[in-house]
Design a binder for these strands. Structure first.
Length: 561
RNA sequence: CGGGGAGUAGCUCAGUUUGGUAGAGCGCUUGGUUCGGGACCAAGAGGUCGUGGGUUCAAAUCCCGUCUCCCCGACCA
């Protein structure tokens, strides 16, 4: 393939509005172009990489017994209404109507529609289990798209759905896909961890996120260095035990704390450490019902955990005049949700529900009670690992895949039932498993680049070899370059021959930017009958004779990661 | 949704304070000299200064509206 007949437009300067390294490199190397916020076009070499990823995903899934199909991107509203997600999905869903005012959405995900399809065709347990997947563009109206294709309004996802006759079959299928996912990421040279996760809006019982190490990750998760346990903060149970020695319970005391609203201020003003302070947060549901949420001053509430406990959407109230001086004393226990650690704080400091005042020496049972005592605090670095007790780390990563057990969350409302072995009707058990294909491109670049540009792992490289005749007016250089390209191509390797009439430096820098694994230079060494070989990843350079080049190069390529 | 910043040539940006004929570098075109790490010389092309209105003899510049884009935050009492 001649460079001049390809469509590769590199940029010397980094576009101002690109933050993440992968975003900058994709723009500079000419893989993508921005069309609008969160919407990108894939230029030919970006498109090639995308296809390589899709092929790996297909190969591994097909090998694992999954079957590909293609669902529409434009979806009717009815099934979404049946499962309640037409409203639940909220503003993230692109909704539209056709000319006769029928309601549709651009699919943000496809549980409903696949369930409808399967429901029509599958009537017997003999047809189960079933693993169906598609590679399809998804549409989500993200509140804040960012980092190029990492968080965008339109993206390509591989979504797989499994259907089962029994729960054990579902769990077996889940683990099967879990293993397959590790193989997929490994085949794409991605370092990925499986992390216990929250099920999110999709519903279900347990779940994992597959998270890539990345500096631009938006998924915070806890990791145990000792046993390897990992969990997103939204799902992480905290097993912190308060082992304070028992103190004498002192008499509750009202103190003036003018203008001292934050934990930091009160901690300084009263010389109390934050973990001796009770923080009271006021939440309300959409109907305006109040919830007083109590955690230690040193802790934060994880709202995902809180919402799960409450069982509905709640919002932090910011307008109450007593904010800064709220406390659980004298609040009915039915309105209080306390964290498990909060009730153990003895002789605590807390707001007095009176402006500019706090109480000292407040104690659970005696001074306040909560009807609900739950794990709602966010895990903090150094907290004990729930499985082995070692101190956990917290780090960020980039979510590439997510697996869920959905049970009958969708099959029941959509009436996707089958006749089981004993002849009875029952809803199918369902699992769902996604991989962000477009996001993987960015993740690979995040993990494989240097200051000069991208370093493609060979499984994803748009070309295996890049051949550079230093001077295209030199007949010997061009002839040799073309001969090498032809030989490598007929041996089954994709080659890019940079035939542009530009200076050597331009070609070298573009080659480094684009990141083809092996570069061949036909230049001054040709006088000795040699071509120069550069390995992009290691920057190692050596020469080989033209005659022995092909076997040497193919052997070298086959050894590349 | 809240806050901050920015829209001037394909890209990066200057010019705006203090109103007076539209600028630079890179890129692009043509010719020549170069030819192993983003070469040089010469000649060119390219912008209704995001957009609508207002003030003024005169607006990229001042005022009001509007659109788009980027960043940060999305509330821890």
């Amino acid at each position: 393939m001649l460079y001049s007949s390809q469509y590769i437009h590199t940029m010397k300067e980094t576009p101002m509005d690109a933050e993440a390294i992968s975003h900058q490199l994709m723009l500079r190397a000419g893989l993508i172009r921005k069309i609008s916020t969160g919407i990108y076009a894939y230029l030919p070499i970006g498109c090639t990489v995308l296809h390589k990823i899709m092929e790996i995903v297909r190969r591994e899934l097909n090998q694992a017994g999954c079957v590909e199909l293609l669902l529409p991107a434009l979806l009717p509203a009815e099934p979404w209404k049946k499962t309640g997600r037409w409203d639940l999905y909220g503003k993230e869903m692109f909704k539209l109507t056709d000319r006769s005012e029928r309601e549709f959405c651009l699919g943000p995900t496809h549980e409903e529609i696949i369930t409808e399809v399967v429901h029509r065709d599958v009537q017997s347990y003999r047809d189960l289990p079933l693993f169906l997947y598609q590679i399809q563009t998804k549409y989500r109206d993200e509140p804040r798209p960012r980092f190029g294709i990492i968080r965008s309004k339109e993206f390509i996802m591989k979504d797989l759905y499994s259907f089962h006759a029994t729960l054990p079959s579902l769990e077996e299928g889940y683990h099967h896909i879990y293993q397959t996912y590790h193989r997929i990421f490994e085949a794409c040279a991605l370092q990925v961890k499986a992390v216990e996760a929250d099920n999110g809006a999709i519903g279900g019982s347990f779940s994992h996120e597959f998270v890539a190490d990345s500096s631009v990750g938006e998924t915070a998760y806890a990791l145990c260095p000792h046993c390897g346990w990992a969990s997103t903060l939204e799902a992480a149970k905290t097993s912190l035990q308060s082992n304070d020695p028992t103190e004498d319970l002192l008499t509750k005391e009202l103190v003036a704390t003018p203008q001292q609203k934050t934990i930091a201020e009160i901690s300084a003003f009263l010389s109390q450490s934050p973990d001796k302070i009770l923080k009271t947060l006021l939440y309300q549901n959409t109907a305006g019902k109040r919830f007083y949420v109590v955690v230690r001053g040193s802790d934060s509430v994880n709202e995902t955990k809180l919402k799960k406990v409450i069982g509905e959407e709640v919002f932090l109230t910011e307008s109450d005049p007593l904010i800064g001086f709220l406390g659980p004393v004298d609040v009915p226990a039915s309105q209080i949700i306390a964290d498990t650690t909060a009730i153990k704080v003895q002789n605590a400091v807390t707001g007095a529900s009176k402006a500019d005042h706090h109480y000292l020496h407040v104690n659970y049972q005696r001074d306040w009670r909560a009807d609900r005592i739950e794990d709602i605090r966010e895990l903090q670095p150094g907290d004990p690992c729930p499985t082995c007790g070692a101190g956990v780390f917290i780090q960020n990563g980039l979510e590439l895949g997510h697996t869920f057990l959905l049970n009958d969350r969708y099959t029941k409302p959509l009436d996707a039932s089958f006749v089981n072995e004993s002849g009875a009707m029952q809803p199918m058990y369902m699992g769902c498993y996604g991989i962000g294909i477009t996001r993987m491109v960015a993740a690979v670049i995040e993990q494989h680049h240097d200051e000069k540009g991208i370093i493609w792992p060979k499984a994803l490289a748009p070309f295996a070899f890049e051949i550079i005749p230093v001077n295209i007016t030199d007949a010997l250089q061009m002839k040799t370059a073309k001969a090498l390209a032809d030989a490598l191509t007929s041996a089954g390797y994709e080659c890019l021959l940079d035939d542009r009439p530009v200076s050597a430096g331009v070609k070298f820098n573009d080659a480094d930017l684009i990141g083809i694994p092996i570069r061949l230079v036909c230049g001054k060494a040709l006088q000795k009958g040699e071509v120069e070989v550069k390995i992009r990843k290691t920057c190692e350079i050596f020469t080989v004779s033209v005659e022995s080049a092909i076997p040497t190069l193919t052997a070298l390529y086959d050894k590349q990661p």
